[in-house]
Structures are given as C-alpha cells and as structure tokens.
C-alpha cells in the first residue's frame, strides 16, 4: 500500500514539475484565446481598465515600482508625483547613509550620542540629530507614498471599473428594451410552457 501511494505521489509530483508554471489562481488553457463580448462603443482604454485586476503580487510590484497602482489605474500624473516623492525619500536615505559613512557613524542609530553641532532643539530642550530628522522623514515618505499608492490607486481603479460597468450595463439594458424586436409592442394574452422535471 505504502509503495502504491509513493508511486502515486511521485507521479503527481512529476506531472507538477513538468508543468511550465505554477498558478495560484485557476487558469484555463484557452483563456487567452477566448474572444470577449465587448460592448459596442467601448474604447481600448476602457477594456484595459475593466480587465485589470489587483492581486497580492501587485503589492510587491508597488514596493519596487513607485506609483505602480496609479499607473495601472491609468492615472499617470499622480503616478509620476508618487515616483517623484519616493525618489526624494530615497535621496534622503542615501544622504543620511553616506554622511554617516564619511563621519564613521552608525547611520540608523537614532538613540546615539548626538554631536552638539548637528542637533536641533525642539520645545523644552528636546534635542534631535539633523540626520535623524532626515532619516525618519525619508522613511516616512517612502512608506506613506507606498500606502497612498496602494490604497488610493485601488480605490480609483474600482471606481473607474464601476463607472464603465454602470455605463455599458445600463446601455445594454436600454438596448434590450428599445431595440427593434418584431414582438415588442405585442402583449401576450396566453402562453404555453413546458416544464421538464427530473423524477
């Protein structure tokens, strides 16, 4: 029995290894061959927006590519703004890192002893290093732009998709209601239906 199960498992494993890709989501073999029923008047941009999905892997892409979700939602100006803000964040981080390297300090040591020349005093004598301010600001900028890109971008994409679905959905219903149909305008006075039920 054990041998038999081993054979089956190794067989399944081999089949899996032979497949070209491992898909988390169910994907049919002919998905890319199927021609969708595109409503009349739909632009390519609208079609592209409607077929766009945001998945977990896009969260990872958005970490690497600033403004990724906004670009996907076809909001280029905001995408470039996020790209710029993220670039400023990275420049800030690099500046802190290289200045620490030159001064032979620990660049991420926020609680270290501050150099008196490199200190800002806030409120009741609370002292903070200038480089720490830049470090924290830059890190905040990077994280906040990422979250902003993801949350606003996703919301925007969904709103755009809703708009397209609403527009063509209503038009489709209107088409059905008003289109030329020889039977339209005739009220049925009697009907015949056949019900097939399984016993």
């Amino acid at each position: 029995m054990k041998g038999f199960l081993l054979i089956i498992f190794s067989f399944l494993f081999t089949i899996n290894m032979m497949s070209q890709d491992i898909d988390i989501y169910r994907k049919g073999k002919d998905d890319n061959v199927k021609i969708p029923n595109i409503p009349l008047g739909m632009s390519k941009q609208e079609f592209h927006l409607l077929s766009t999905n945001l998945r977990l892997k896009d969260m990872l892409y958005a970490m690497v590519v600033p403004g990724y979700v906004h670009f996907k939602a076809q909001e280029k100006p905001m995408g470039y703004a996020i790209l710029g803000a993220r670039a400023v964040g990275f420049i800030g981080l690099s500046a802190v890192y290289y200045s620490a390297q030159i001064n032979d300090e620990n660049w991420y040591d926020i609680n270290g002893d501050p150099n008196p020349d490199d200190v800002i005093t806030i409120g009741n004598g609370w002292e903070i290093k200038k480089s720490d301010v830049i470090l924290v600001t830059s890190a905040t900028l990077i994280i906040s732009t990422y979250l902003f890109d993801w949350i606003r971008g996703e919301n925007l994409l969904h709103r755009k998709q809703d708009k397209i679905r609403y527009k063509y959905g209503i038009k489709h219903e209107l088409q059905k209601a008003y289109s030329y149909n020889p039977s339209s305008g005739i009220l049925p006075i009697a009907s015949l239906s056949i019900k097939i039920s399984s016993l």
Partner: peptide, 20 residues
C-alpha cells in the same frame, strides 16, 4: 428599414442614457 430602425435605436439609447 431594419438598418434605419437600428440606427435610430443607437440615438435613442444614447439619449435615454444621457437623460438618466
């Protein structure tokens, strides 16, 4: 006549949608 009716349909549908 059928083509004509269809072309009227498109205008009518667009008009109804605009109205909505």
């Amino acid at each position: 006549s059928v083509t004509n009716l269809f072309s009227q349909d498109n205008v009518l549908i667009e008009f109804k949608y605009l109205q909505l």
